[in-house]
Nucleic acid binder design. Sequence first.
DNA 1: TATATATGTAATTACTCACTCACTTATCAA
DNA 2: TTGATAAGTGAGTGAGTAATTACATATATA
Lengths: 198, 198
Amino acid sequence: MRKPAERRKAEIVTVVLALADRIGPDRVTTGAVATAIGVTQAALFRHFPTKAALWQAVAEHVAEGLAAAWEDALSRDDGPIDRLRALIAAQFAQIAATPALPMLLFSRELNVTNAELRATFHGLLTAFRGLLAREVGAGQEAGLLRGDIETVDAAVLLTSLVQGVAIRWALGARDFDLQGEGLRLLEVQLRLLAAERE
Amino acid sequence: MRKPAERRKAEIVTVVLALADRIGPDRVTTGAVATAIGVTQAALFRHFPTKAALWQAVAEHVAEGLAAAWEDALSRDDGPIDRLRALIAAQFAQIAATPALPMLLFSRELNVTNAELRATFHGLLTAFRGLLAREVGAGQEAGLLRGDIETVDAAVLLTSLVQGVAIRWALGARDFDLQGEGLRLLEVQLRLLAAERE
DNA sequence: TATATATGTAATTACTCACTCACTTATCAA
DNA sequence: TTGATAAGTGAGTGAGTAATTACATATATA
């Protein structure tokens, strides 16, 4: 079935992510993508000049999703602790919705083929840490979080929590609920960071 | 130059790890390994029946290194907190000595091609978490660490710390001292976990 | 309706990869 | 010194894989 280029491009990006989840990012061949969509392999090159360009489009799609989720998490008018919760919940939600994401960060296509893209993703992680740091700082100002910890260090500990849980989830058999376990551990870490002991 | 099989095998394993660091685990082809050593590609198959077996040997090499480092860290007769420090310091040291390790965890070889390899590494991470949990438990028993936190949760937070810092190091330009930064953050987390506030 | 163009196909190319096999030669023990 | 054997070679094979090309046709628009 013939489709306008825009929709076909979007379809290809979606299928690449789904395939990356099912068989791993580095097994996503142009042939596999084409078969999954129902077109010939050559048709892909009508929409993307190279396979690297295709991966770049995928990465941009993911980056936009993350940025949107962060913005949405910060849009609510809560206190800093709840904003921290929302940010990290959004991160877990994005990873759960795009399970290939952790592997994608280390995939050959993204790291080896496209250095620019690697910088983009590294920038995303840094940006996320920055957002966390801002909320942590606000929490410290408000006397909600311990003040005897460097703001940035607390942010690093929180991003590490996300990455650690995501790794355990991805490397294991995905045999637990990422979001549930992640948010549970977040509460533990938040209790450690809290200004007052209950 | 002809070498006895044992030494050649060891050489191959070493070169694979070095190449994995330099060009990425999934770019390590049998041809690249052979050229780096100075033999023909066919010679590799004199020592390993398949490429998967070669990777398994690499994994065992890494596993032995980690196990030895852990044992060494636990051999000293310190208190639980110092043992935690020693364990995590050993982990950072091993990662720094084998910089391909973080990437290896996300390689296609491990995640897609070689299920046995994946099981090996997943087992290693689980074992490490177990060792940490034991020391955390001892620290809680001794009244050195907060008792109102699940022992296992604290262990997860500590392994996450290691992984988070290692990822930031590997994905970035390796532009900071892994061990130094890691141990610094460990002290922060230990302060959060401490039973008494100073 | 006619036609230009965007979308898609079939067939093929150039290349990489893991792996095989018949053959050679260095090494070492008898 | 000689013969057995372990270690290495040269020349392949078959199975992918991205990308190209000449050709076809659906679709929108004038």
